[in-house]
Structures are given as C-alpha cells and as structure tokens.
Simulated assay, not measured.
Amino acid sequence: MSLFWRIYGLNALVLGAATALLLWAPVTVSVPVLLTEAAILVGGLAVMLVANAALLRIGLAPLDRLTRLMTTVDLLRPGQRLSVAGHGGVPNLIRTFNDMLERLEAERAASTARALSAQEGERRRLSQELHDEVGQSMTAVLLGLKQVADRAPEPLAAEVRQAQETTRQSLDEVRRLARRLRPGVLEDLGLTSALTSLTTDFATHTGLEVTGRFDPDLPPLTSDTELVLYRIAQESLTNAVRHSDAQHIRLTLQHEPGEVMLRIEDDGSGIRLEREGAGIRGMRERALLVGATLEISPGEKAGTRVSLFVPATEENA
C-alpha cells in the first residue's frame, strides 16, 4: 500500500468510526446546544484527533527513522542500515536508501584507495629526492666544511666546526623526514621492526617514554595491511605528542582470535570526541581499505586509547 492510501485509509477509519457512533448512539443535538451535548461533542472530537495522531505516528514511523539516519549517516562508519519489511512505498524507499548507501560506501572506498595510493607514491618520490638530492648535497657541504675547518686558523675553525655541526643535525633531520615519508624498514624488515623503529624515533626526538609490546606470533599480512597499521600508529603517536600533553605512550600489537589488534594509549589530557579532525578521519579512511575497525575512546585512567582491529582473513593473509 502506498503512503497516500495508507494515510487516507487511517483517516477514513477514524471518520468512519465517528460517523458510526453518531448514527447508532442515542445522542441528539438541541438548538440551542446544551452544555452536556457540547461536552460530548468536544470529547468525541478529542478522541478522533488523538486516534488520528496515533495512527499517523505509527504509519510515518519508518520515515522518521529514515530521516534520523539521513542526518547522522557517516560513510567512514559503514554498515549503517535500516531494517525493512513488507512491500509498498515506504519499504521500497528504505530499500532504495540502503542500496544508495552501499553504492556510496563502495565508491568512497575506491576513491580513497586511489587517493591514498597516489599519496604514498608522492611520499616515496619525496623521500627519494630528500635522500638522493638534498642528502647528498648536504653531505658534500659537510665534507667542504671539514676541509675548511682543517685549514682555517683556530678562531675561524671553531665557527666552521659549529656550522658543520649545524649542518650535520640538519642532515639527520632530513634523513628522519625521509624515513617517515617512506618507511624503508617496513619493506625490508617487516611490521614489527618498523614499529620498533618508530617508537624509538619518537622517544628520541620528543623525550617522552614510548614503549612497545609486539606479539611474536602475528599472522602473515599483506603489504597494504602492514602499511595501514604503520601509518595509523604513526598518526596516533603524532597526535599524542602534539595534542595530549602525554608523558608516556604505550603501543601494543597482538594477535587475537580472528583479528590483529593495534592499540596506542597515552596518559595525556584526553581527546575531544565531539568533532574529529582531518588526522582521525584520515585514519578511518585507511582502516576502511583493509576492512578494519577503528575505535577511539578514553583510556583506563586518563588520556586517549586508539584501537585498530584488523580481521585476520585470507584477504589479509
């Protein structure tokens, strides 16, 4: 039954019941109207209005649920669907909306995969240029400064050595940026070694206590899955350092029944969950690429906990 005929039928039912009561009820209307008769008529009208409102509420409830979902749906949290039963205008509308959500989620996942693939390619190119061009140029500058320092008199030699030390620190920073842009250790030594290097690097350059605990019995994962795990760990550590005022960060990677869990937890000031920034939404997009689930919640005592659950399926093996 279409929505029009459903609403028409509900109103016809109420009006028909009222007409039947007027026909068979021993009630007459005097002229002028008596107070008791007016009370009965007003009471009947009130009953009609209440019954009509209740029936319309029941009939339009699926549209209310659809409206609420349309205002809150988020493609980064897939699987939000409305239950539907029966046939007709409203069930068909809900089915169409559910199908549209499936298409949008599939298109969003495909476009995100292309965008992130292009981003990783650009990162590899920049890392290679930093390593090959900038790194080699700064190395040549270091060698030239060393030769000048060896031949210069002592007051000038001290200044040259100071410039040499500054250049060496800048070269180390360039190499660190190149490693962050393209984690070569992930490709060469695997996920555990890459995460160990990442925690060590963050602890060295931030002065925070960053500890890692890694399960030695991890199932085999695809390169895309390992890259997603690494990037989410990297972004979570960066957020903890920038925004949480944390002193200790704990990173855990372990194998649980049917899934691999990555967890980053700090003891900072916590995170506001009312509005997610670009970094968190970027992590959600990466998680969708491998069918993972990302959860962000307060820690046990304080701070923020980021948990990523990657299904250990054949696609990720």
Rank of each mutant, 00 (worst) to 15 (best):
Ala51Arg: 08
Val84Arg: 06
Glu159Ala: 12
Ser2Tyr: 04
Asp99Pro: 00
Ala17Asn: 04
Asp132Ser: 06
Leu23Trp: 09
Gly270Lys: 04
Glu276Ala: 11
Ala25Pro: 00
Asp224Tyr: 08
Leu145Phe: 01
Leu55Ala: 11
Ser244Cys: 03
Val148Leu: 15
Asp172Ser: 15
Leu35His: 10
Thr293Lys: 07
Arg179Met: 11
His248Met: 00
Val290Met: 07
Glu159Cys: 11
Trp24Asn: 02
Ala25Ile: 02
Leu49Cys: 08
Leu66Ala: 10
Gln247Asp: 10
Met100Thr: 12
Gly207Pro: 00
Gln80Gly: 03
Leu41Asn: 02
Ala240Lys: 01
Val260Trp: 05
Gly291Phe: 03
Val90Asp: 01
Tyr8Leu: 14
Glu265Phe: 02
Asp74Ser: 14
Thr199Asp: 08
Arg305Asn: 07
Ser244Glu: 08
Glu259His: 15
Ile249Phe: 12
Leu63Trp: 02
Arg213Ala: 10
Val148Phe: 11
Gly282Val: 05
Ala51Leu: 14
Pro257Ile: 11
Pro219His: 05
Ala106Ile: 04
Val90Gln: 02
Arg65Thr: 08
Leu294Asn: 04
Tyr8Ser: 13
Pro78Gln: 01
Thr304Lys: 02
Leu186Ile: 07
Thr167Trp: 06
Thr139Asp: 13
Ala51Gly: 10
Thr192Arg: 14
Gln136Asn: 15
Leu13Ser: 10
Phe202His: 05
Arg272Trp: 00
Ser307Pro: 06
Ala287Glu: 00
Gly135Asp: 06
Glu129His: 15
Pro183Phe: 04
Ala240Gln: 04
Arg182Pro: 01
Arg250Leu: 13
Ala38Phe: 10
Gln234Thr: 09
Val306Phe: 10
Arg77Ala: 13
Ala20Asp: 05
Gly279Ile: 04
Tyr230Pro: 03
Leu75Met: 03
Glu274Phe: 03
Leu13Pro: 08
Leu191Gly: 02
Arg81Val: 09
Ala287Leu: 01
Pro219Gly: 09
Ala240Asn: 09
Leu104Arg: 04
His248Cys: 01
Ile58Gly: 12
Arg161Tyr: 06
Pro257Phe: 07
Val185Gly: 03
Ala317Leu: 13
Val27Cys: 03
Leu41Glu: 05
Thr293Trp: 07
Glu295His: 12
Ala53Glu: 10
Leu104Gln: 11
Glu133Ser: 13
Ser269Asn: 11
Phe202Ser: 04
Ala61Ile: 04
Ala115His: 14
Trp5Gln: 06
Glu314His: 07
Pro216Val: 06
Pro216His: 11
Ala53Lys: 09
Gly212Cys: 07
Ala233Glu: 02
Ala157Ile: 10
Thr211Ile: 07
Ala152Gly: 08
Arg284Cys: 03
Leu66Trp: 12
Phe97Lys: 03
Phe214Gln: 03
Thr167Ala: 15
Gly144Asn: 12
Met70Val: 13
Arg114Ser: 15
Ser2Gln: 07
Trp24Cys: 07
Met283Asp: 00
Ile7Trp: 11
Leu308Cys: 01
Val84Phe: 08
Arg6Pro: 09
Pro298Phe: 06
Thr112Ile: 08
Leu229Val: 15
Ser117Phe: 09
Thr36Trp: 13
Leu294Tyr: 02
Val290Cys: 01
Val148Arg: 10
Glu159Leu: 14
Lys301Met: 10
Gln136Phe: 10
Ile249Asp: 03
Asp188Lys: 15
Asp64Lys: 13
Leu56Val: 11
Thr71Arg: 15
Gln247Glu: 05
